[in-house]
Design a protein around this nucleic acid. Structure first.
Lengths: 120, 120
DNA sequence: ATATTAAATAAGAATCATTACTATCTTATA
DNA sequence: TATAAGATAGTAATGATTCTTATTTAATAT
């Protein structure tokens, strides 16, 4: 992987903005610093960073990417749209152990609860 | 909601084929029985049936729809693609109760584990 | 049973996200 | 510094979904 300006800038954008972002949002941010950047380049770099395990493409919020981090459980508020991490690792581990006993190997998971958050 | 042939046939398709299907798959099946049906009609009916709580549009497998049924936990095999329901309701209920205690109201959830199934 | 009308449809255009293509440019290396 | 493989810009192409509009049809009143 060659260290091009485009790659470096996109990585920096993810380091600065913690949240999940669409390809277009990233394109706009990158464009401020590198006006000649192409949207196609943004997409290609995003795909590369996903296969490199640097980023994760969310299945839930289609077309959004975020820094790959430890496993988490999401709660998405239907009113304000805020996404927060919630506790529950123990219970999930328990489910995963039962799967292992049955001969299934778990490599990834996505756990999302939808509803109304405390503030709304 | 008027009982048009298009609507009736699409509902029947979901009653016959239990799995999750894309709009295009449904279109092709419906087209056999109603050659004049339009893909746009399929999409509109699918959207209507989702707002009517008859169908559910899956976030995980983008663009796929399935009959709305009781809550379940999915395991998707990365090799053969098979989707199966797995046990774990108790643990999930426990997580939901904790959320309720914190003042969050849960209305929906999506829980998917990815990995390799017993057969693969 | 037939006329009426609001809702639904067919067909294709339009939109939006994403990928493919290709000539040009750039990073890493000799 | 020259070179070549890899990356890029710009745009065309694709695929899923929605929009538009003239036409058709199911439900209802006659």
């Amino acid at each position: 992987m060659r260290q091009t300006n485009q790659l470096i800038i996109i990585k920096e954008i993810f380091q600065k903005y913690e949240g999940h972002q669409t390809a277009n949002e990233i394109y706009k941010k990158a464009h401020r610093r590198l006006p000649a950047i192409s949207l196609a380049t943004v997409y290609r770099i995003l795909n590369t960073l996903v296969t490199e395990n640097y980023l994760e493409r969310l299945n839930i919020e289609e077309g959004r990417y975020e820094l790959k981090k430890e496993k988490h459980i999401h709660f998405i508020c239907n009113k304000c749209g805020k996404i927060q991490n919630i506790p529950g690792e123990e219970q999930i581990k328990s489910i995963e152990e039962n799967l292992k006993k049955k001969g299934m190997k778990v490599s990834k998971r996505e756990i999302i609860f939808y509803g109304i958050c405390k503030e709304c």
